[in-house]
């Protein structure tokens, strides 16, 4: 048997399945793929209807639960007001700076602990201790140390986002496949080559998973930081509306914050699909598992 021309069909089932993938989709497959395109708006509309019905029937005070159309008007008012964008920009900058700081320090510290095994042993008790501290409880302290300006919020965002990025990166570095390492070793790869061509790409999916959590935590950190001090940012806007009983405005700013969080998270997830298209967490989702 001459195996040198092409792998036989039997030997390469994946070549066969590629064919299947190219064939036209059935109605059921299309339905499956676009299911959430219909269900998500449907559920939202249903939710709004129930909300409206409840407000109308129960006669609940508008200070507790305003009607959905009132909230919608408040959102429109907010979105057409340039002041909102000032607040948004402030919060966004805090999140970005905190997140960036967390990425840099998280990766560097993970690398340090990975490369210098003694460091990990020495620092491990402190890392565990810091992990179990409810870090949100430290926010007042950061306000005292770093003032009511943006710096304290950036620090809070960074501290919250740091842990998932750091822990995941370290885990990723430690989980490098032993067989892959031996491939590098039998080829006499230098330390730098091993780092660039094995350790970095191996740990990247873990770092990105950490960043996925990190961006959510950075958002929480910045907003809660703004709750507690200062006079700028969407968190501040939310609290000031609570204090002045602007209940529709309160709803509006919460919804804007939610959308901000959603957009930021989506950006990180999108970055991930571009950065590691080869990874199971990305490609199995693409092929629908």
């Amino acid at each position: 048997m001459d195996m040198r021309q092409q792998p036989s069909a039997q030997d390469s089932p994946d070549a066969a399945s590629r064919h299947v993938a190219r064939s036209p989709l059935t109605a059921a497959q299309i339905f499956n793929a676009y299911l959430t395109w219909f269900t998500t708006p449907l559920i939202i509309i249903l939710f709004l209807l129930v909300w409206k019905a409840y407000v109308t029937i129960s006669g609940v005070s508008a200070f507790v639960l305003p009607a959905p159309e009132k909230v919608l008007l408040a959102i429109v008012a907010d979105l057409t007001d340039p002041v909102t964008y000032d607040h948004l920009l402030t919060t966004l900058l805090e999140i970005f700076q905190g997140f960036a700081l967390a990425i840099v320090t998280g990766i560097l510290l993970a690398l340090l602990l990975y490369k210098v095994a003694v460091m990990e042993r020495v620092l491990n008790p402190f890392i565990v201790a810091m992990q179990v501290v409810p870090k949100v409880a430290l926010i007042p302290l950061f306000v005292v140390w770093f003032g009511f300006g943006m710096t304290s919020k950036v620090i809070v965002a960074a501290v919250l986002a740091f842990f998932p990025i750091f822990m995941n990166t370290l885990l990723g570095l430690k989980s490098i496949h032993f067989g892959h390492r031996e491939v590098m070793e039998t080829n006499n790869a230098s330390r730098l080559q091993t780092f660039l061509k094995l350790e970095m790409p191996s740990a990247l999916p873990y770092t990105l998973a950490g960043m996925e959590m990190g961006i959510v935590f950075a958002t929480i950190g910045a907003v809660v930081g703004e709750f507690l001090g200062g006079n700028r940012g969407l968190g501040y806007l939310t609290i000031s509306r609570l204090n002045s009983f602007q209940i529709e405005g309160l709803f509006s700013s919460i919804i804007i914050l939610t959308m901000l969080g959603f957009v930021l998270y989506s950006v990180v997830v999108l970055a991930k699909t571009f950065a590691i298209p080869w990874h199971e967490s990305v490609c199995s989702r693409r092929t629908g598992g």
Binding site: P7, D11, S12, P13, D14, R18, W278, E280, C283
Partner: peptide, 10 residues
């Protein structure tokens, strides 16, 4: 092709 597209033999 990407390695995950290969069979064991390939």
């Amino acid at each position: 092709a990407s390695p995950h597209e290969l069979s064991g033999g390939m």
